[in-house]
Computed example of a mutant assay.
Amino acid sequence: MPSYALTVGFDLDMTLIDTRPGIRAAYEALAAETGTRIDADLAVSRLGPPLERELAEWFPAERVPEMADRYRATYPALAVPPSPALPGALDALRAVREAGGRTVVVTAKYEPNARLHLDHVGLAPDAVVGSLWAEAKAGALREHGATVYVGDHTGDVRGARAAGAVSVAVPTGPCDAAELRAAGADVVLTGGLADFPAWLAAHTARGGAASTRA
């Protein structure tokens, strides 16, 4: 893999894309199909962890794998079209490229569905890695040489720290700024990704393109 002076990782759900409308629709369809009560509004209020963890709140453990397969099968048609990019997402990826860098999306979402989301909203990272959560994201971040990881969840902060990357947090998901700081985020962009290009310019000006926490 080529060496880049700057590689920035991004989470997907509630960092780059507001997947709540689509995920709500997918849960509502699964509830209707199975006759199982699922509080879709509650489910989308705590996005971040793997799908199976949320499904375990509504189905017996032995049914979770089957329900995960069914959810993922209906996801492209139900969840991708209504989910928009979050404000500043396109400019955030563009800022990395204009700085001569590379972008990688590392997400807990099933990778084929993550790619569909990105294509739908016109975001084109250099790489996408799915089905990784919290500290498990560290391996992919290290493999791709990411020295910065941007996410909205305390799990993303833990993943960045485990990878030795600078943790940049945005309070656009289920975790507020105080929670993200308490989890150890190096910086919290209170204005969301709209604040990222200016932060990145300052970071690279300080020689932070290839820096790590470790």
Rank of each mutant, 00 (worst) to 15 (best):
R37E: 12
A77V: 09
A29R: 11
A136T: 03
E135N: 05
A56Q: 10
D152W: 07
G191P: 10
P171S: 05
V80C: 08
C175H: 15
G35S: 07
A43T: 09
L118C: 07
P197E: 04
V64A: 08
R181V: 12
A140D: 00
A73F: 14
D119C: 06
E28K: 09
A194W: 09
E62G: 07
E54W: 07
G100D: 14
R158K: 14
D156G: 06
V150W: 00
T34C: 08
L6T: 00
G207V: 01
A77T: 10
A138D: 01
D119A: 15
V129S: 09
V104W: 01
L180V: 09
P49E: 05
A29S: 13
V8N: 01
P171V: 13
A198K: 14
G155F: 02
T107I: 05
R37G: 08
A95K: 05
Y75M: 11
R206V: 04
M14Y: 07
S3R: 12
A124T: 12
D176N: 15
R115Q: 04
E57T: 14
L200N: 00
D18I: 04
T212F: 14
Y75Q: 07
V64M: 08
S45Q: 13
T172S: 13
N113P: 04
V104Y: 00
G101P: 07
A165Y: 02
D186H: 15
R72Q: 15
L90H: 15
P76L: 11
G139N: 09
E111N: 03
V157C: 08
V121M: 09
P49Q: 03
V121A: 05
A61W: 06
Y75D: 12
Y71R: 09
A198Y: 13
V96E: 02
T36G: 04
R142C: 10
F10S: 01
P112E: 01
Y27D: 10
L200P: 01
A163L: 10
V187G: 07
D39N: 12
F196H: 03
V128Q: 01
D186C: 14
P50K: 05
V44Q: 09
L93V: 09
V170I: 14
A85G: 06
G155Y: 02
P81M: 14
T212K: 06
